[in-house]
């Protein structure tokens, strides 16, 4: 039989949504159960009745991706249960294996993001330059982004600084559910991208959510590392729903 800890770790590495239930007191203290949103389970708590109640409760917690300690009334008394929901890591997709991409993905890693670098130029998108990232994709950015299916947990920074890459690259996440889309560009350069996307039929409402110039300017940080820091801060603000004016 496979060890429960190893099953949990494998699920976390595969970025599955999973919950671990632990009994915190009473005669079955330390007993554990792993639960998946599709109804799969592993392990047991020593009580069929208790498991049923917990599986019901876990459905809500999965929905809200929330971890909680709960009290349950059993025949033998009150017991405390800890249900830890492990949401999949947020994803940071950086388009353009430029200098800023190096510190940005390092910061992303530190902040618990799964980090992905996309660039069509194999000379830049190398393991040597990005030893810390989870994935390097050498492909035309728009194709790579389409295959990555940006969702509510995805944060995209477009840094290639080259209209022939940026126009098609921006078009994908801006029309996706991505939580954050930022573009490194001056006001003038961005106006060209903006115009090109509008001509391609992307609505103003969608374009309105693009963060550009990228990063929190107010921080006043400079240089590739400083800009990376301000982009990271902007992503976290977006994640937490904090308005930065």
């Amino acid at each position: 039989m496979k060890n429960m800890y190893e099953i949990l770790i494998n699920a976390l590495q595969a970025d599955e949504l999973i919950a671990q239930v632990t009994i915190l007191n009473g005669s079955n203290v330390g007993e554990k159960l792993l639960l998946w949103p599709d109804g799969r389970k592993y392990g047991g708590l020593g009580s069929e009745k208790l498991e049923k109640q917990i599986i019901e409760k876990a459905k809500e917690l999965f929905q809200r991706q929330e971890t909680r300690k709960l009290e349950f009334e059993l025949d033998e008394g009150r017991i405390s249960i800890f249900i830890q929901v492990y949401p999949p890591s947020p994803r940071m997709i950086v388009v353009g294996a430029v200098h800023i991409a190096v510190p940005l993905t390092e910061l992303g890693k530190t902040m618990g993001f799964r980090t992905i670098v996309v660039d069509a130029r194999s000379a830049f998108a190398t393991r040597e330059r990005f030893p810390h990232v989870d994935e390097i994709i050498v492909k035309w950015p728009s194709e790579a982004l389409e295959a990555l299916h940006p969702d509510e947990g995805t944060y995209v920074a477009i840094l290639s600084h080259d209209a022939k890459f940026d126009i098609p690259a921006l078009q994908v996440p801006v029309q996706s559910k991505a939580k954050y889309v930022g573009v490194l560009a001056s006001k003038h350069t961005y106006s060209i991208l903006h115009e090109a996307l509008r001509e391609n039929g992307v609505s103003e409402a969608l374009l309105g959510k693009v963060h550009t110039p990228i990063g929190i300017k107010k921080l006043g940080s400079r240089g590739p590392e400083g800009i990376a820091f301000s982009v990271m801060a902007e992503m976290i603000a977006e994640m937490r729903g904090v308005e930065i004016t």
Partner: peptide
């Protein structure tokens, strides 16, 4: 858990 699992494995 993600922050401690590498050390634990070692």
């Amino acid at each position: 858990m993600r922050d401690v699992m590498e050390n634990i494995s070692n």
